[in-house]
């Protein structure tokens, strides 16, 4: 990579780090791991920068790298979390008024379901875009969204009433 290209890369990465950290944190709920994931994603982006910078949706490409990096992390046995497939009907909510309950509930979701919710409702992607990013069908995205929202609904109701 030439110096001018690297400067372009540096400008782009500097401007996106904060947003990428937030997405990564929503996925993994650990700031240290979030920073690691962002670093991994940016190294991969650097490797493909010449091709990537010509893409129509560069932000989407970077998010895809980030999400896939996190999913890869999840597959590693020593990283594997105890995911709960079915949540209790009445979850115990964290009374933290700063939104800890939302994050706690998000944390209870299986990895891909969490990724679907973050991509759909935080990154604002459509069903089609989310399906393309995760490499699954649109039906899967819809069902994962529905189940994820079911899990979050008690919290959403509470947020609406406060």
């Amino acid at each position: 990579m030439k110096r001018a290209e690297e400067e372009t890369y540096r400008e782009y990465a500097s401007a996106r780090i904060d947003q990428l950290r937030r997405v990564a944190y929503l996925l993994c709920r650990d700031w240290h791991l979030a920073d690691d994931l962002v670093s991994i994603a940016l190294v991969k982006l650097y490797r493909h920068w010449r091709r990537a910078q010509r893409m129509e949706s560069l932000d989407g490409y970077v998010r895809k790298i980030l999400v896939n990096s996190w999913l890869d992390e999840q597959r590693r046995p020593w990283r594997r979390e105890q995911a709960v497939e079915e949540l209790p009907e009445t979850p115990v909510l964290d009374p933290d008024p700063d939104g800890g309950a939302l994050l706690a509930l998000l944390n209870e979701l299986p990895a891909r379901r969490r990724a679907v919710l973050v991509l759909r409702f935080y990154c604002g992607l459509s069903v089609t875009q989310t399906a393309e990013m995760l490499g699954c069908s649109e039906g899967t995205v819809k069902s994962q969204t529905s189940r994820g929202l079911d899990a979050l609904r008690p919290l959403a109701s509470r947020l609406e009433t406060t």
């Binding site: 690297e6 890369y9 540096r10 920073d35 190294v43 650097y46 490797r47 920068w49 994050l103």
Partner: peptide, 21 residues
């Protein structure tokens, strides 16, 4: 709002670039 104020970033862009190279 739920995330709040993130802690200082540990992402070192210089290190990222060296690894990228």
């Amino acid at each position: 709002h739920a995330i709040g104020t993130p802690p200082p970033s540990r992402v070192d862009l210089d290190t990222v670039i060296v690894k990228g190279r």
